[in-house]
Simulated assay, not measured.
Amino acid sequence: MRGFSLIELIVGMAILGILMSLGIPAFSDWMRNARVRTTAESVLNGLQLARAEAVRRNTTVGLYLVDTTTSACALSTAGPNWIVSVDSPVGQCDVAPSDTLAPRIIQLRGGTESGGAATTVAAGQAAIVFNGLGRPTPLPDVVLITISFTDAAGAACVDAGGAVRCLRAEISVGGQIRMCDPALTAGDAQGCI
């Protein structure tokens, strides 16, 4: 006779269940880390776009963190939506990207596009404006402008004994933009200053 006996099937299902129970926590941590990284990379790309457009146009261009992408938008240090535009988009976030129509939006991203609903954004300031030389303007009072990205569900970061790899974007007064990991030591190339 060919096939499986009932006992073999039950043993196989038990082994599969054990393997799945071991793998699901690791998978959920991986998903949290992927969402945090995706949101951080999205904002980092927006910062790089704003800086590049400021240099290309030889004018001020900013990345604005906003609470929503509707006409009722306001600046928010908790994002997770962002808009790159020549003028402040406050109250006009629903305007289509255009070089002539105020606020002259270049690009916008909703937080849900990049996993932002599952990620907490905490910025030192809601608007980061670059001048024609690619430097933040006005010059910040601090050495670095920072934007931190953590898990919205409250999972602890690796440096606090948790499993989520929290990230931070740093913008220097010279305009250098980088993403770093606060859990790594300062001597590590991927660590924060």
Results as ranks from 00 to 15, higher is better:
111 G>L: 05
24 I>R: 03
176 Q>Y: 12
65 L>T: 05
122 A>K: 12
43 V>R: 00
188 D>R: 06
63 L>Q: 05
141 D>E: 15
191 G>D: 11
193 I>G: 13
104 R>C: 01
123 A>P: 06
34 A>Q: 11
131 N>W: 04
24 I>F: 07
180 C>I: 13
178 R>T: 12
45 N>C: 05
21 S>Q: 05
143 V>L: 14
132 G>V: 03
15 I>W: 01
112 T>L: 13
45 N>F: 10
57 R>E: 12
9 L>I: 09
14 A>C: 06
189 A>V: 12
68 T>V: 09
50 A>Y: 00
111 G>I: 03
59 T>C: 02
185 T>V: 14
57 R>V: 08
175 G>A: 09
152 A>R: 14
89 P>K: 00
10 I>C: 06
22 L>M: 11
136 P>Y: 00
22 L>V: 13
67 D>H: 07
167 L>A: 08
138 P>D: 13
3 G>H: 09
95 V>E: 01
108 L>Y: 09
36 V>C: 10
87 D>E: 12
174 G>S: 14
163 A>M: 08
26 A>P: 00
161 G>A: 10
158 V>G: 03
118 A>T: 12
150 T>Y: 09
64 Y>P: 03
191 G>T: 12
157 C>N: 15
168 R>D: 11
70 T>D: 15
21 S>G: 11
120 T>L: 13
42 S>G: 15
38 T>M: 11
182 P>K: 10
99 D>W: 10
78 A>C: 07
12 G>Q: 02
91 G>N: 04
23 G>T: 14
186 A>L: 15
169 A>Q: 06
65 L>G: 01
102 A>G: 03
131 N>C: 03
16 L>N: 01
113 E>M: 13
58 N>I: 05
79 G>V: 00
